[in-house]
């Protein structure tokens, strides 16, 4: 018998600090698998966010930089501009990317920074104990929306892929999920396409991954997968929002 599935080499052989059933681990693995398949661990620099995945620098075996909350796209810009032949990715949660770091995200995209952004959307601030995120769904109960998110008071969720797809610098904006094996396989293809875009100097590629937070949602890990399917996907439809490989931009750039 031969090994047909094991931990990718780009991931360190340590136990993640994530809660049981938290899908961050799946997303880490997919990124590491792509790095392995492309053979680029030695040329890759990752940038971590502030949030649950803050300690991802211990998990990825490539060189890693820890950014301030929301600033990962700016840090990645500094890395990539001075090291254009290296692969640079950020790994960010919804609060990091779509609240405190919105300006850095939008401007890295519109500049067409040739980086990969892995955006983990689990509709909550996990690290601080489950407060409202920019992607928290209307009606969703969190620590800071104890009566459910009321758009009258707290506004509406941000749909990041839809927003970034409008920008000329965005090469790829795709939303995927990790709540089932078929979705996970699709997610991996999207992440690989994003890294290949960077290799081919296509510009800014973002893969939004719908993810779970069983602990702060107050659900079992298995029920959390179901909530992702039943509540998140209808609000955040999966799919390709922009892909310049498939649909070249109309305007001359």
């Amino acid at each position: 018998m031969a090994v047909v599935f094991e931990k990718p080499k780009a991931l360190a052989d340590i136990t993640f600090h994530y809660c049981p059933g938290c899908t961050h681990g799946i997303i880490h693995r997919l990124v590491a698998e792509v790095i392995d398949e492309m053979g680029i661990e030695g040329e890759t620099i990752g940038v971590c966010p502030v949030g649950c995945s803050v300690m991802a620098y211990d998990y990825f075996n490539c060189d890693m930089i820890e950014a301030a909350h929301g600033r990962a796209p700016a840090v990645a810009t500094g890395v990539k501009r001075t090291n254009p032949d290296k692969f640079v990715f950020t790994y960010q949660g919804d609060g990091d990317l779509a609240a405190i770091g919105t300006a850095e995200t939008v401007h890295a995209a519109t500049r067409g920074e040739n980086i990969v952004v892995i955006f983990v959307n689990n509709t909550t601030y996990g690290m601080t104990g489950g407060q409202m995120a920019p992607t928290t769904l209307p009606g969703q109960i969190t620590q800071t929306t104890p009566y459910g998110r009321d758009p009258e008071l707290a506004g509406y969720p941000v749909r990041v892929c839809e927003m970034l797809a409008t920008l000329s610098g965005t090469a790829l904006a795709q939303r995927v999920a990790v709540n089932s094996v078929p979705h996970i396989r699709e997610a991996k293809k999207a992440i690989k396409k994003a890294f290949e875009n960077q290799r081919d100097k296509k510009g800014f590629s973002i893969v939004e991954v719908l993810s779970t937070c069983p602990t702060n949602w107050g659900l079992s890990p298995v029920d959390a997968l179901k909530r992702l399917e039943d509540e998140m996907i209808p609000y955040y439809p999966l799919g390709v929002y922009k892909d310049t490989n498939a649909f070249p931009p109309k305007e001359a750039e």
């Binding site: 620099i45 940038v47 930089i65 950014a67 301030a68 600033r71 700016a74 840090v75 990645a76 810009t77 500094g78 890395v79 990539k80 501009r81 001075t82 090291n83 300006a103 850095e104 401007h107």
Partner: peptide
């Protein structure tokens, strides 16, 4: 300015 100093952080990191 916030982005600028973080770009410096990224470049200096390398």
């Amino acid at each position: 300015e916030i982005a600028a100093i973080n770009m410096v952080l990224g470049a200096a990191s390398t």
